[in-house]
Amino acid sequence: MSRAVPAAVVAAVRRSVSQVCDPEYPEVTIAELGILERVSSTDGGSTVRIELVPTMLGCPALDVIARDATDAARAACAGADISIEVAFVDSPVWTPDRIAPSAVDFLAREYSVAVRRRSANASCPICGGTALEHRSDFGPTPCRSVEWCPQCRNPVEVVGRVEFPAATGAAQSSPAAMGAAQSSPVPA
């Protein structure tokens, strides 16, 4: 019979996995990006389960992130006989609002990448202008769109291509509503 995972080990795994960095931004952690959802003891206490939230279902970095999280968890367990389970969960849905303010500043400063959040207007990482104009939903990665800053006349990459549901798990239950969405203007 397996012994329960001590709370201290779960905490150590949580600390270790929180330090895993995103492959696209190697100085920013998956905790800061809101990709790490939960670290807990499950399966009657014999397993540490790490729940991750994918930014996009087709993100090519998912496997790398899962592998790095597994490695970090194993390192924290230091050879103890504990099972590690890493899972991507469909709920909650990731949104750019999950990115920590410190990471938003870092992405602007070091990568010239803006973040579109509901809580604040995206601002130009080059000049700080806030009147960004939408140019294309599709940028260099699946989670980035392309906007244009009329103030400094630079194109700007913005994290957050997708209009995410207003509330976690909110259902788009009316198929007709999708049809109606076709004619709605492109949101700024």
């Binding site: 469909d90 788009q172 239950s173 999708m178």
Partner: peptide
């Protein structure tokens, strides 16, 4: 996806809602 978003198969419903959020930009394109 809209017809599956409230599916009684809960994990299928979750995938459908997640996919719908991504589909809007495809439709707009």
């Amino acid at each position: 996806w809209g017809a599956l978003a409230d599916s009684s198969w809960e994990s299928l419903g979750a995938v459908a809602r997640r996919a719908l959020a991504e589909e809007r930009s495809h439709l707009r394109h």
